[in-house]
Nucleic acid binder design. Structure first.
Lengths: 239, 239
DNA sequence: GACTATTTGTACGTATGTATG
DNA sequence: CCATACATACGTACAAATAGT
């Protein structure tokens, strides 16, 4: 019989709640606070056992919980890696994967319009510079005609715009939604040429000018092409 | 021996998946499709073992995964109950609980403005009727001076507005954010009298008229009071 | 209030597959 | 190719908590 946890223990954490839940919380905190950055490898099981003062089974259980949440990703014989900073992205992915693509796009549109408005209200210099850089990278990719890098630059531009709003929670929601949308669009849209930049320059100009309404309108215009494409595809499927 | 679930699996991309993941997915499906409604008690472990043809530990692991996702809630000696239809709400809650309340409010504002715009674009008759009913219920509660029912009616109004957008994903995101905000506001705001309805009637009128811009503006005005309150509280804490 | 049945929680053991070295 | 270690799944026994009698 292994010593029950109820007796005297080194107690790295207080005891009122279940031990496994506390470990889960602790690991989640480490990831969310950036101590274990996304992509990094977390300490081995024995080290966690030693550090937290709990049994190996408890550690394993906690890791598995975070694995299901999409935060950690164990690789056999290698180690356990950080997959995402929070479970929000994975949860959105699971939820939105079964949703209608048009509804997903609408949510993305709502978030991005709001982000553009907030960014115009802030006019953060550094964020604006990054946004301009992203725009120019995309225009360069368009000139080169490189489809892949153009798409990557497009995604990066939108991400930068949302980041310019200065609201990490908003950005995380957007990322989660965007991943789903990119995924569904990527399944069949390799032939579609988004060669023309859809109006990103207008977005940047409006944000830089502090024109919240204009920024929203410009973002809305950006969505039109994607929406039309989704509608056309839905019509095809219907026929 | 009950038939195991492990046999041939024509998955889209041949990915050798674990039985426990299949069970997790199956249970998630049952919940999401409403076969196990929120609040109901799911079959006991032995019955699930019999029904799914897997061992008890496997069932337990799956249940625990959904428990951590915030979907199921096991109670010793009683049973396991359905807590939420998807894990999105819980994930948002975990993520947003540590975020700045002003940022959470901003996200809510973004979602609600977008929902109001979409609702004005749809002008769904049934949804509009429900929205009007919610508004009148809130005004009635305001006349009665019943603080608790007024708050409940306020939450219900916002929820109804978002539902009127006709986008379940958007509504679910909003609910998750709203729960967090209500929670943080409820911690100390019992004395604050939100006696005056903040302009909900204008929102309803704009939505009914199909005036998307007006609906957005009206919603934005609604937020002002809450934002001012949060700012004031932040200033208090700062001092 | 106490007893009993039911149900989940925990612990341990074992067999089998699978990746690593 | 083999050996080791680990992950997975199943089964069993008992503990703990709750509901109902």
């Amino acid at each position: 019989m292994p010593e029950p946890v109820t007796s005297s223990r080194p107690s790295p954490i207080s005891r009122p709640r279940k031990v496994s839940e506390l470990v889960v919380e602790h690991l989640t905190d480490l990831v969310e606070r950036g101590e274990w950055p996304v992509g990094s490898r977390i300490p081995t099981e024995p080290e966690l056992v030693d550090r937290l003062g709990v049994g190996r089974n408890t550690v394993r259980e906690a890791v598995r919980a975070l694995e299901h949440a999409g935060i950690l990703e164990p690789r056999r014989g290698d180690g356990t890696y950080v997959r995402a900073a929070s479970g929000l992205d994975a949860a959105i992915g699971r939820r939105a994967r079964t949703a209608d693509a048009l509804q997903v796009l609408e949510v993305r549109s709502v978030l991005e319009r709001g982000a553009a408005r907030a960014a115009a209200g802030r006019r953060d210099v550094a964020a604006l510079a990054a946004l301009r850089a992203a725009l120019e990278a995309q225009e360069a990719a368009a000139r080169d005609g490189d489809e892949d890098s153009f798409r990557a630059a497009d995604i990066a531009f939108h991400a930068e715009l949302v980041r310019a709003a200065g609201n990490p929670l908003l950005a995380e929601l957007y990322d989660g939604i965007d991943h789903v949308l990119v995924r569904t669009l990527a399944t069949d849209a390799h032939g579609r040429h988004h060669r023309d930049v859809p109006g990103h320059r207008e977005v940047v100009d409006a944000v830089a000018a502090g024109d919240a309404e204009g920024a929203e309108r410009a973002v809305e215009a950006t969505m039109a092409a994607v929406r039309a494409y989704l509608l056309a595809r839905a019509a095809e499927v219907d026929a």
